[in-house]
Write a protein that binds this DNA or RNA. Structure first.
Lengths: 130, 130
DNA sequence: CTATTTGTTCTATAACTTGTAGAGCAAAGG
DNA sequence: CCTTTGCTCTACAAGTTATAGAACAAATAG
């Protein structure tokens, strides 16, 4: 699994890690039961501190996307219904969509972009999970 | 204009202000030429520091959504084409959409939500601009 | 012209966040 | 038993957030 993280970005590293892993799950690169690298080894790969990876994994756990076990490591969980997710997500989507509208992008073009992004998910074959 | 800002939120106040103003522009509550409140008076309304409002206005100016003039104050600018906006926005949309997909929301439901949010914009009549 | 309103810029400070660092504990598995 | 792994603790430097006050600069209103 290749995670595209920019150490020089203004976006916090732990946030980028979280985002890339969420996208990998949406993409189908990571599926239910897939193991994520151990915090220390992923940290070593990027040349960052393992506490930073820990923080990203902790966010994903809080969001219910992965489960963390000692020895077994981080594992992608089956998707569970979460009633509080939809309204909270919609509020964030509203802000993002408003930004595009305010910049003068036509609503149908915005929707088309969303559709093509959604279509791009799941087209990637899952990697072998060791 | 009523801006819903939560001082106790973990989201920075200047960010919330920016978000609410962007949404007001998308909504049509603020249109080209609309004046925003003066930094000091808006700060007084919320009981916050005027530097915080200043930061929000500065973000909006950087994004090309408002123009700041001495004496005249902050004014909503006509929307101008911005070639760097679309790809940058799409990247952020990708992360947000991935989150919904990873949480198991079906793609068509996500699109429907986006469509209804977009439809909700522009249905509000512009306020009088004094 | 003068006075006022408004954005702009400067310094300063306290609290919180980010990322690094190291030590050590705790449990699951081979 | 022992290794691997998550987890927790303390600590530190650098940056961000929000507050605070002072003063400058330009444009408008009277």
């Amino acid at each position: 699994m290749i995670l595209n993280v920019d150490l020089a970005s203004e976006v916090p590293i732990y946030q980028q890690l979280r985002d890339r892993i969420v996208e990998a799950i949406a993409d189908g690169v990571l599926t239910e039961g897939s193991s994520l690298p151990a915090t220390r080894s992923l940290a070593a790969d990027f040349g960052i501190n393992f506490h930073t990876v820990n923080k990203a994994y902790d966010l994903l756990r809080q969001q219910g996307l992965i489960r963390l076990n000692r020895k077994t490591g981080a594992v992608v969980t089956p998707t569970a219904a979460d009633p509080s997710f939809h309204p909270e997500w919609t509020a964030r989507a509203r802000t993002l969509l408003a930004e595009a509208v305010a910049k003068g992008i036509p609503a149908d073009e915005i929707l088309t972009t969303c559709r093509s992004v959604l279509d791009s998910f799941g087209t990637t074959l899952p990697e072998d999970t060791p």
